[in-house]
Amino acid sequence: MSAAAQPVRSALELLPEVAHKLRTADAVCFDVDSTFCEDESIDELAAFLGVGEQVAALTAQAMGGSVEFKEALRTRLGAMQPSRAAVDRFLSEHPHRVTRGIPQLVALLRSRGQQVFLVSGGFRQIIHPLAESLGIPLSHVFANSILFGADGAYAGFDEAEFTCRSGGKPAAIRHLKDKYGFQGVVMVGDGATDAEARTEGAASLFIGYGGVVVRQNVAERADWYVMDVQQIIDALSH
């Protein structure tokens, strides 16, 4: 990584108060694409459907915070037109590339009594099998739902989902706090929508993840910025 791509120095340091919030949190929420997994499932699905370059550019704009998320989602899905059959075929041919250390981190959090949630702008149809493979209840997944017609053709997306819009991730976390009575919630992710979660009444801590892609604007907003999941494991273990 070039010097220009290095995240801000202060965010690289694990401050004592940040470590304390992480260790005492009731729940840890993870973004999925480029955080929990190494791939961007929307981009991977788009490439599978033959519109990869067009959709990747829109994803970059959405993650960088330059386009309102719901509009970017609508545009990307409109370009993709994913049918139920195409999504099923994609899932069978493209298994998730789970980020190194994630299974161990999930197990560690569970052993500490800390709840694990997935809060993603990706799709339930793709994320649910991943959650099930790691023993995460589907009720702990917040993501978007692709809608299909009776013939299996693409029919839009569920606009009632928290994460279909900008501001959706803090809204999902506030919902979790209200539902379960959580006091401290940590958000871990790589993008601008993850950094949004660190707002009043939502996440008490935002850990930025740069192991797949470094986004300087995200690093600048992080309480802690990590390049390897093992850093979080070490912080919890000490």
Rank of each mutant, 00 (worst) to 15 (best):
A222L: 04
A60E: 14
R174V: 00
R100I: 01
H128D: 14
R174G: 13
K21R: 15
L12D: 11
L12F: 04
G52Q: 10
P129G: 05
P7Y: 03
Q231E: 12
A219R: 13
P95E: 01
V119Q: 10
S66P: 08
D88L: 06
A47W: 04
G149T: 05
A27H: 12
V212F: 03
R174K: 13
S133D: 06
A27K: 15
A62M: 07
F30C: 09
G52W: 03
F123Y: 04
F117G: 10
H94Q: 08
R23P: 12
R89Y: 00
A4L: 08
P103A: 03
S92D: 03
R84S: 09
I233W: 14
E200T: 08
Y154R: 10
E93S: 12
L108S: 12
I42S: 10
L91W: 01
E71D: 11
F123D: 07
V214F: 04
L176K: 13
E132N: 09
Q61I: 00
C29G: 12
R74M: 04
L147Y: 02
T199A: 13
L205S: 10
D151P: 13
G201Y: 01
V28P: 14
D151S: 14
G149R: 11
G50R: 12
F157Q: 07
D158M: 08
S166R: 15
P129E: 02
L58N: 11
G113L: 07
L45K: 12
A150Q: 10
K169V: 00
G156S: 08
R198Q: 09
Q125V: 01
S237M: 04
T35N: 09
L73I: 00
G78D: 08
I127V: 11
R221E: 12
D223N: 15
V18H: 15
D190T: 10
T193C: 05
S83I: 02
